[in-house]
């Protein structure tokens, strides 16, 4: 798949997602996960890390795309935005795992994934265990809204919170989850 031809498509899906279109957003994340997987695998193979680490990074990048999606400016190209996030997350991974960045020729692969790559492995992350580390309130709202698929108003009734409090709690919970995943991989 050529990146340049997919830019208008990805951008349209992203804007659809920003407007609340769940189907467009799901398609976007699926397409991105293939591109991100190829990107991270390509880089990790140079420092002899395997596909599980690549899958960890794919998931971390997807959560970053999600929790930071408000930083995308609709008037700008979409691919450079995703690429900057993927690159940032990869450099952050190198720093955390103490791999010397000078050994990795990052700029040799300037484009975000020229081909798709489907998942054959699971990441090392255990969602249930990570959720257990969140605050009870965040855990409950994420369970209701994001996993059980209850609407925000249903979740608000069940948890005795206001709708806006549920939204805030889900957003903060996902950010906390991203933080936990980063710390998990510090080792």
């Amino acid at each position: 798949m050529d990146v340049r031809s997919s830019e208008p498509e990805l951008r349209a899906l992203m804007i659809g997602g920003l407007d609340g279109g769940a189907a467009a957003y799901r398609t976007l994340l699926q397409k991105l996960s293939g591109q991100l997987r190829a990107y991270f695998k390509g880089h990790l193979s140079r420092i002899s890390r395997g596909p599980v680490e690549a899958e960890d990074l794919v998931q971390e990048a997807l959560i970053a795309v999600h929790t930071r999606r408000h930083t995308y400016d609709r008037s700008q190209l979409f691919t450079p935005w995703v690429y900057a996030i993927a690159r940032y997350k990869f450099l952050d991974y190198l720093r955390r795992t103490k791999v010397n960045a000078a050994d990795v020729p990052i700029d040799e692969v300037p484009e975000l994934a020229v081909h798709d790559d489907s998942a054959h492995v699971e990441s090392s992350l255990d969602l249930k265990r990570l959720l257990a580390e969140l605050s009870p309130r965040a855990r409950q709202t994420i369970q209701y809204v994001k996993l059980d698929g209850l609407s925000v108003s249903e979740a608000a009734v069940r948890s005795g919170m206001s709708e806006s409090a549920v939204k805030v709690s889900v957003h903060r919970g996902l950010k906390a989850l991203a933080r936990l995943i980063r710390e998990e991989k510090r080792s």
Binding site: L18, D19, G20, R26, Q59, L62, K146, L147
Partner: peptide, 19 residues
């Protein structure tokens, strides 16, 4: 965790973003 699981989770009850 499977990546598809994560994608499901992230796109469930998606909140629109104000510009």
């Amino acid at each position: 965790m499977k990546t598809d699981q994560l994608i499901d989770m992230l796109s469930t009850n998606l909140e629109p973003i104000k510009e």
